[in-house]
Design a protein around this nucleic acid. Structure first.
Lengths: 221, 221
DNA sequence: GTATCCATTAACGTATACATAAACAGATAC
DNA sequence: GTATCTGTTTATGTATACGTTAATGGATAC
């Protein structure tokens, strides 16, 4: 009983992919008809996908101009990281309060190992993926479905900018140490430490990324 | 040249209104066709509005069952207030850092006066409205458009529950004092104090509301 | 009486049709 | 040359059509 994927879902995920990959460039406009043709469907599912993507901040709808792929400025990056900082730190605190067993934290621990391995291999893409998994798992452990949703939407908004700057940034050694410290605080049930370390971690990430964007004049990524 | 309001916009705002007023009861299901007829339009704009409302967490879309008006449990309330607490407190800190002039803060100050007046008159509805304006203005002063958006979506999700419990809660005297203290910290440029007071303020509001919902068995408001 | 199967119904997902109004170009006035 | 006007084009907003498929109820088997 396989679930035939609906056109709307396909449009949503394919458009997301095209945005993340840069195939649809930040700031560019695309007519509904054009996208519908590219995706091999009628305008209706494209329109519906567009509404969802707009709600997630990935596109703007400009009547008679088409969908505009939302650019992300340095200021946007700051704003988004501020939100991520607060909400992920809250999740870290809640995770610590939840008194998870080591077994419950196994997934979190494994992402940290993956990051270590990737770093040893100088494989930045693998590192970024493991980093992503760490943050996603951390938020999941915080057990607040709305918070998870918001964080994942914000994370998507900076995905392009993050992958563009991935190879410009210094080796993320500090990141791994931070993650390990957060993990240990959660395992120890120390909510305040988990919160504060993660907070500092995210604020540093924000400053580093914003500096990169501004230095390289990467406007509207 | 007045801007003829589009059907989608009308559907969105009318459905929102019907949800807030309780005309569409929490947990109830409503077919697209039925709603379209009630609003005097075809299914298309109703569907599009539904997608937006889903993104805002106000309805769920259940194929062949219709739109379900999202209920808000005590746990939901806790989750939402946790998010509001962090984000509004961040906004308060940012507002303090922005070094606004007294003139810039006039609107904020006026909402506090309105709350005092309303409380003196025992007019709880007017108090709630002024309280809303205070929080909205506070967030606006934080200058983070995405944060403002998230906060307003979260606030909408608990709107029904708040108005239901409005007359059960103790007189919000403490609230007015808290708001005044936050205002003064912002005016003084003291980000930490603004943040911490508002944080405590929101956490207390959360505990009070959650206790009310649980005590009165108000499930799925 | 209960459970299973099947026919019927109707809500949805998607495609298509169409009127409206914005964008653009070309023409005209100055 | 510049600005305004006008006609044309076309993307959109909305309505409608239609096939698919999940939900419902009744019949049948036990």
């Amino acid at each position: 009983m396989e679930q035939a994927i609906s056109s709307v879902d396909r449009a949503t995920s394919e458009l997301r992919q095209m945005i993340f990959s840069g195939e649809l460039a930040p700031g560019s406009d695309h007519l509904e008809t054009e996208l519908a043709e590219r995706l091999g469907m009628s305008r209706t599912p494209v329109r519906e996908a567009a509404l969802t993507l707009r709600a997630q901040g990935l596109v703007e709808l400009r009547p008679r101009r088409g969908l505009r792929i939302a650019p992300v400025s340095a200021q946007d990056m700051r704003d988004i990281y501020d939100i991520l900082t607060e909400l992920e730190s809250l999740a870290a605190a809640r995770a610590a309060e939840a008194r998870y067993s080591r077994a419950d934290l196994a997934t979190l621990a494994s992402t940290i190992n993956d990051m270590d391995t990737a770093l040893a291999n100088d494989d930045l893409r693998a590192w970024a993926q493991a980093d992503d998994r760490f943050h996603r798992e951390l938020v999941r452990l915080g057990r607040n479905a709305r918070l998870s949703m918001i964080v994942s939407v914000m994370r998507d908004q900076v995905r392009r900018a993050r992958s563009t700057t991935l190879f410009m940034r210094p080796k993320p050694v500090q990141s791994n140490d931070d993650h390990r410290a957060v993990y240990q605080a959660i395992a120890a049930g120390d909510a305040k430490t988990a919160h504060d370390i993660h907070h500092t971690h995210r604020r540093q990430a924000r400053d580093m990324l914003v500096a990169l964007l501004e230095k390289h004049q990467l406007h509207g990524l």
